[in-house]
Each structure stands twice: as C-alpha cells, then as structure tokens.
C-alpha cells in the first residue's frame, strides 16, 4: 500500500517536472546574456536581457500590438458573447440545441482552418482587408464562442422567478435586466473575458495569416526571428509574460478565497 503511494508521488513529481522544467530553464537563462542556451560555461548572471527588452523598439511595438488587439477583441467578444448567450438561452426547443451545437463547432474547429477561412473571407468579401481591423474582427469571432460557453451555465443556475421578483418590486424590464439579472452573470462574464483575452494574446496561426505585412504581434515576431536564431531578449520577455499571468491567476484565487472566507465569517457571526 505504502509502495503504491510512493509510486504515485514519484509519478506526479515526474509529470510536474516535464510540465514546468522547460519554463524553469527558460527563466534561469533569462538572467544570462549568452546566446547559446545550455552552455553553463559562459553563464553570467546579468539583467542585461531585461534592459535590452525595454530598449528594443521592435519587441515593444509587438508587445503593444498584442495587448491592443487582445484588449479590444476580448471586450467586443465579451459583449457579443453575453448578449448571444442570453438570446440562445431563451430560444425555443429545436433552435436552442441547433445554435448551441453550431457554437461548439467553432470551438473544436482547427485553428488552421479558421485562419485560412478568415484570410479567404477578407480577400473575397472585404477587399484584401488586413492589419489591425482584420485581426480584431478575427479574434473577436474566435473568442465569442468561449464567452457564450462560460455565460450559459450561469444563466441556467438563475432562479426562474428572479426576473419576476424584480418586476414585482416595481422595476421595469430594463432596470430589472441591469440590477437583477446582469449581476447574476458577472462571474461568468469575467471568466469569459479572461479566457477571451488569453486566447487572443497567444494566438499565432490566425494572426499570421491575417496580419498582412508590417504588423507584428509577439508570437509572429518570435516566429519570424527564429529564422536567424532566437534573439536572447525573448527569454526575458517570455519570463515577464509568464510571471504576469501567474500573478493575475494568484490574484484571482486569493480574491475569491477571501470572499468565500468573508461570507463564512459573516454567516457564523450571529
């Protein structure tokens, strides 16, 4: 029995190592200016790469582009997705199932297919549209289904009498929507937004096919620079992005844990 337990521990340790060791190595080498990774002989501990990062215009522009596109398209996707989820939820029998199924198709569809499809669409229907507008449209469209999927379950948890309770207490339909129904959806909307933002942030395939020339995001910039060996500065950039996302994740967890605790404390008081 004890042996099995130990084996399990070793297995988990191995799994975690495989998952996180690459990232750890990347972080370690982000503190070395050496262009050859893996050679410990010329490992010099410096912050040079981080310094370079902020003076490298190409990287800073790509960084800005990435966050601009992710910001705009995730806000749009959150709005469209929330409204669509409400609409789909109140559809009648056959249509509800059909529309939900169509929504899931876009989620499981291969990125490369979506990417080529958007490229063809922009060429045929929108006169060779590319650049920011094309990317915002494409990213909004790939993110929206995820928002719908995260808002829908919240809708089905709402007490069906809640809307009527708002109306009963004197609120008109619009006021009830904003003060009673919307607050119930907020957790779903937030998680949908976060999902949409990260999805847009690390999208590569769709961006590559639709960005046109001249516009680079982080992922396409890294890709194009691999042709002449990876610029060591990207190690610092990757480290910063990883730490940033880790910080946001920890922040969200700590916040929700403290909220739960507060609710319990208040509950136990009387």
């Amino acid at each position: 029995m004890k042996k099995v337990y130990l084996l399990g521990k070793i297995f988990i340790g191995l799994m975690l190592a495989v998952m996180y060791l690459p990232i750890v190595i990347l972080i370690v080498f982000s503190f070395s200016g050496s262009s050859g990774i893996g050679a410990w002989s010329n490992f010099d501990f410096t912050f040079d790469l981080y310094g370079n990062l902020f003076t490298n215009d190409q990287i800073m522009t790509a960084f800005g582009n990435t966050f601009l596109i992710a910001g705009i398209s995730s806000v749009l996707a959150t709005f469209i997705g929330t409204v669509s989820a409400v609409g789909i939820y109140y559809l009648h029998r056959p249509f509800k199932g059909i529309v939900s199924a169509i929504n899931r198709i876009t989620v499981v569809n291969a990125d490369i297919v979506t990417a080529v499809a958007f490229m063809v669409f922009f060429i045929v229907c929108l006169n060779y549209l590319d650049g920011y507008v094309a990317l915002v449209i494409a990213h909004t469209m790939i993110c929206t289904p995820y928002v719908i999927l995260s808002v829908m379950p919240r809708l089905s948890q709402i007490n069906p009498n809640l809307y009527e309770a708002g109306r009963d207490l004197g609120a008109g339909p619009i006021r009830t929507l904003f003060t009673v129904m919307l607050p119930q959806l907020v957790p779903g909307i937030i998680s949908g937004f976060v999902m949409a933002f990260t999805l847009s942030l690390d999208d590569f395939v769709i961006t590559l096919f639709n960005k046109g020339s001249g516009l680079e995001t982080i992922s396409t910039l890294i890709y194009s620079s691999t042709k002449h060996g990876i610029d060591p500065t990207f190690r610092a950039l990757s480290t910063i992005i990883f730490i940033g996302i880790l910080a946001v994740l920890i922040g969200i967890n700590v916040y929700s844990a403290s909220r739960r605790k507060k609710a319990l404390l208040v509950g136990g008081k009387a």
Binding site: N159, N161, L162, E164, A165, G166, V180, P183, Q184
Partner: peptide, 8 residues
Amino acid sequence: FQKYALFP
C-alpha cells in the same frame, strides 16, 4: 415566491 427568489 415559492423558492424565495431573493437577489443573491
């Protein structure tokens, strides 16, 4: 209401 329908 039967199931209270309080605003959570």
